[in-house]
Design a protein around this nucleic acid. Sequence first.
DNA 1: GTCTATACGAAGATAGAC
DNA 2: GTCTATCTTCGTATAGAC
Lengths: 193, 193
Amino acid sequence: MATKHDPTSGPRAAMIGSAVDLIRERGVAATSFADVLAHSGAPRGSIYHHFPRGKSQLVEEATQAAADRLGRGVERVLDATDTVGALRALADVWRRGFETSGYRAGCPIVAAALGTEPGARSIAGTTFDTWCSLIATKLTVEGVGSARASSLSVLIVSALEGALVVAQAQGSTTPLDTVVAELELVCRAAVSR
Amino acid sequence: MATKHDPTSGPRAAMIGSAVDLIRERGVAATSFADVLAHSGAPRGSIYHHFPRGKSQLVEEATQAAADRLGRGVERVLDATDTVGALRALADVWRRGFETSGYRAGCPIVAAALGTEPGARSIAGTTFDTWCSLIATKLTVEGVGSARASSLSVLIVSALEGALVVAQAQGSTTPLDTVVAELELVCRAAVSR
DNA sequence: GTCTATACGAAGATAGAC
DNA sequence: GTCTATCTTCGTATAGAC
């Protein structure tokens, strides 16, 4: 039977998914077990059965799950188009997320990076690095020298994450659109040389 | 007597200053009154005397105080040199802050933007906007067209704030240095055209 | 795996004395 | 302005039954 031990279903997965949603909205410190249980509908008695290390473990697994999901999304759009097209596609996803959530849901990796769980903080650090590598590799394929591709990828990830923070604080997608347009100019100049 | 009603001294100012420090390290939600009292040495009985609206008020005033302080710093470096020089000067300040705090203290405005107090969130939004305007004005003086200056300033603020988050998560100032170097290239290209 | 009950501490906030 | 005491709610975590 294929559904046995399916890590994407069941109360455990539901709790992780809810933790991601709530952390995006309120941050790590303000997300409690009670919130996660109410949001996921998971049974009360199974928290420390599924997560023996308690909140640290839940937050770490939620951060890792969000990192994996977002990382797959980045890989997918980088495979489908060029760097500039990928930038636009990613901005579209975030723009929609802001509009449908009323600017309540931000990036879960930023929330983890600034949160109260050291384990999750360090997962956020390596996640940013992974994203930079994916983008740098793509830029290299497009003809950018490896040193420049590496530093440009750091600018892209930083600017995008910063734009999400600014956009959320201002309740407007304009900063995000502006930053993507500026990054497009930089990428084009770097590729065509 | 000149020290009468001095808003920069006394228990009230000490509490605001401590709140800024603690919010930078732990975020808004994880910063409690007990923490602020212990850190500032302020008397316990005066919390709701000085801040009748409680934690919301303290966090809002702390965010505004930090915004004013940082805004004056930005104005100062923009007056002293050109945009590129200001970028380097600001990066120096943050680099030192990370190194002396063991990468514990981040940007208080980002913390407010992602925190649990709506009032402070909105102060963060207008603060980002103020910084963008300051930088855009400087770029205009340096010969950049006003539309481009405006969008470039959004890139600069977003990339800088994003770089702070990435640098803190990775426990390294390298992302900050890399982003500033990339922003320098963009600024030079925009000015000399 | 899930339940209830509970321990234990900390949070924000208020009341009234000094 | 500052104190102590207290209220109430909520947080994480554990114990032991089912």
